[in-house]
Design a binder for these strands. Structure first.
Lengths: 224, 224
DNA sequence: TGTAAAATTCACAATTTCTTAATGCCAAAA
DNA sequence: TTTTGGCATTAAGAAATTGTGAATTTTACA
């Protein structure tokens, strides 16, 4: 079931959103301030977080920024609630790692279709806790750290596996070198420019040359 | 898995309790004030709640009283944390519907045995894991702590057996060293870097070299 | 309390994986 | 056509990780 965490200091809005989304079959969690939101997010690990921008103490943008520094929330969708369409904070909100925003007053239909659209965009099979991804002619098992290519079993070394897992986590998405560095090596490790190329090459050697595409000057993506 | 909600305004204590209980395999949720505690309790529906009595705004006794008015929490165990054994609030705490109390300073052993005792009282029977596993050319019997390899009977020493049992409990899954440590030694025991290797080696000596696979930088798995 | 088995440690050896550096290749820009 | 920027390829050696035999410490229990 899709878990959604809603954060707003106004109880009315919390109730309103909860009601409408529960009706659609989502698993709703609520919370009324930024600090608890972060705590809860860690425990719930929701697929989507709806964040009011205007909140006392810690506002939505701040919460988002905090969550986005943690790799745990890489895949978590974050939607902002904002009072007026013209609000400048919308821009900074999306800058900070938000995926979308919804303006008040909220129409249930708009809310629901936005939420569904976002979730649809999200990788369908790889449900946060999902440990097996089937894509192209590959079955990638996170727990077994193994890849089946057709009937053949591949055992990739750690870095290669992580790289593949990253690319496959969002098929079609282009990962910049920067992203790949920070996610696989961590931002404090410094490695040369060719390191990623080499790993990409080894992956291609093993899983075939067609699935991993190079976009010159931009990055790599997994295509299928 | 048993869910435990811990409520305390002091982060140190929260961390301390979380750490010790997680180590025992409980599913831990935390929260630092009474109001959020009630909100979370509804969403998590934990089997047990550990409540600090002294908290700003809404104290533990108050939280307990509130929860006890709802039938949803009839079966929920509530344990109070209190600073001194003589604290009069203990009495009112238990009056109010608490199941037990623990006094600070908290000793991990006391904490754990209290919690387990309460849960044991609660839960009549837990169906244990399968006791005999047949895999590859092995028949592994948990109760007898013995392994048949073909027609040959092996009697493995405790640690070796536990390690084999762990690996075999999820064939194919890679267990990191970290996992192996915490599951077999417990995260508070410190053993050297080569200890696992040595046990793996002894296992391989006895059950044959092919079934236990090393994934460098990741861990070990049982393959078949 | 003595003793044997079990568990752990240690110092290296053996492997595997990762990174780099040098060079080639290609397409787009000058 | 030449230059240039960016990626691919390769092989080599660094670095990280695991394996091993023997020694040492612990533990279980007679």
């Amino acid at each position: 079931m899709t878990k959604i965490l809603i954060v707003d200091d106004e109880t009315d809005i919390l109730d309103f959103l909860s009601y409408n989304l529960k009706k659609e079959g989502f698993d709703i969690y609520t919370c009324s301030d930024g600090k608890s939101a972060i705590q809860m997010a860690h425990q719930i690990l929701p697929q989507l977080i709806i964040l009011d921008i205007m909140m006392p103490e810690m506002d939505g943008v701040e919460v988002c920024r905090t969550l986005r520094t943690e790799s745990e929330f890489d895949q978590t969708l974050i939607v902002f609630l904002t009072a007026r369409a013209e609000d400048v904070s919308q821009i900074s909100a999306l800058d900070v790692g938000g995926d979308d925003y919804i303006t008040k007053p909220i129409k249930p239909q708009v809310l629901i279709s936005r939420v569904k659209a976002l979730l649809r965009r999200q990788r369908p099979e790889t449900d946060e806790h999902e440990q097996v991804v089937k894509i192209a002619d590959l079955i990638i098992d996170r727990q077994k750290v193994s890849v089946m290519k057709g009937a053949e079993l591949l055992e990739l070394p750690k870095k290669e596996f992580e790289l593949l897992w990253l690319l496959v986590s969002r098929p079609g998405k282009v990962f910049t070198r920067e992203e790949i560095y920070t996610k696989i090596w961590g931002s404090d490790v410094i490695v040369g420019d060719r390191t990623i190329d080499v790993h990409i090459r080894k992956l291609r050697e093993k899983i075939g040359p067609d699935n991993i595409k190079t976009l010159k000057g931009i990055g790599y993506k997994f295509d299928f």
